[in-house]
């Protein structure tokens, strides 16, 4: 059988890579994609816990389901914002949307 640590490690790596994407990318859409990676990493953890440790209640599964749902909603909304940004500025580079500085 596969030890749980395998899944957890993979989840951590996936989360980290996603975070790296969020921090290093400039395009709003790419940042969104990286966020999806992070969510996937977290979901792996949830499900691993649910099926390994929480065999009766498997709350993690339900949580993962919600994560997926919310992610879908988030992507929809975020894309709307990106589109709006693009229309206003002709760019989706988040660095250029820095009106909120000092």
């Amino acid at each position: 059988m596969i030890p749980i640590e395998y899944f957890l490690t993979l989840g951590a790596i996936l989360f980290g890579l996603g975070l790296f994407g969020v921090l290093s990318r400039r395009s709003a859409i790419l940042i969104l994609m990286a966020v999806e990676l992070m969510l996937a990493g977290v979901s792996i953890n949830f499900i691993a816990f649910a099926s390994y440790l929480d065999t009766d209640a498997f709350s993690g599964l339900i949580f993962a389901l919600f994560v997926i749902t919310v992610a879908a909603a988030e992507v929809g909304l975020a894309l709307g914002i990106v589109l709006r940004l693009f229309r206003e500025r002709r760019t989706s580079n988040v660095d250029e949307a820095s009106d909120m500085r000092w």
Partner: peptide, 13 residues
């Protein structure tokens, strides 16, 4: 989204 924002590449730093 990619298509609509005409985003080609990771923008120049």
């Amino acid at each position: 989204g990619l298509m609509m924002t005409n985003a080609q590449d990771d923008p120049v730093v």
